[in-house]
Design a protein around this nucleic acid. Structure first.
Lengths: 145, 145
DNA sequence: TATTGTTATACTCTATAACTATA
DNA sequence: TATAGTTATAGAGTATAACAATA
């Protein structure tokens, strides 16, 4: 197993699946809904608790500037709140607002629902298990590249 | 298994891995190298044989306009060639040039090498098998969404 | 000096819209 | 009418560069 040529093929197939999925996910975007990075940032803020923009950027592995854009969008809709860090006046701590929590709770995001629905409807338990096992490997792969 | 909440979690994790991977892959781009869609189009043209832009667009599931952009980039570097279809004067048939074939043969693309290297170096055979099984599932998921 | 955050700008990838030529 | 291809424009998402404030 894992001869060079197989790994090359795997790389190509993986790229194909990953880019197609990203594209489709973006196409599902409807006006007024959260963008993909917005949803990711909001979800992370919710599971990880309040954090600064720089911390979130490191966690999501994007630049602080890009995270700033994303957070600005979330703040405009009142989904996150900012408060200054009393110990370090450079920092601004972001947290999920009540509206944001409700948004996450009620899964109002049509794209997320559709994504989850596709997984639930069209895949066997064995296939779901494969995807579940593969998800963290994709992250690790991204970090190793 | 596959309770709604698990599927939601899987959707979130999968999105995280997929978007991170896409981002990293794009970051690896160095000037003068093939872009991700260029590489995908060239590889498909090589495996599938000569095809029109519209056919390639359908195969890659992007718009003909987007494929036109990609092919224009490949043509500029002399990696693909165009010739009119003698039977249908609307169509232009694209094929991989000798230079393009050499590019694919010699794997000159540093990103592909690095992608394949990360797979070969940092993953066990079992993990590679999981990724191999997951790749087509990602494509199917993208189509079902 | 290093870090946090901001603003400005540009790039990649893809989409929609509008058009011409051919079928 | 429908399809192949083109051009123009716009949008999402991210990057680099340059800066001010604070540590």
């Amino acid at each position: 197993m894992s001869q060079p040529s197989n790994v090359e093929d795997l790389a190509a197939t993986l790229y194909g699946g990953v880019s197609l999925l990203t594209r489709r996910l973006r196409q599902l975007q409807t006006p007024g809904e959260l963008s993909l990075p917005e949803r990711a940032a909001l979800a992370r803020l919710n599971r990880g608790g309040p954090a600064s923009a720089a911390e979130l950027a490191r966690a999501e592995q994007i630049t602080p500037q890009a995270m700033g854009n994303t957070l600005a969008g979330l703040e405009e809709r009142g989904l996150v709140e900012r408060r200054p860090d009393p110990h370090d006046r450079r920092r601004i701590i972001m947290s999920v607002s009540e509206t944001g929590r409700e948004m996450l709770r009620h899964k109002r995001d049509a794209r997320s629902r559709q994504f989850a629905k596709a997984l639930g409807d069209d895949f066997t338990d064995a296939e779901l298990a494969t995807l579940r096992a593969a998800a963290p490997l994709l992250e690790r792969l991204a970090e190793k590249i």
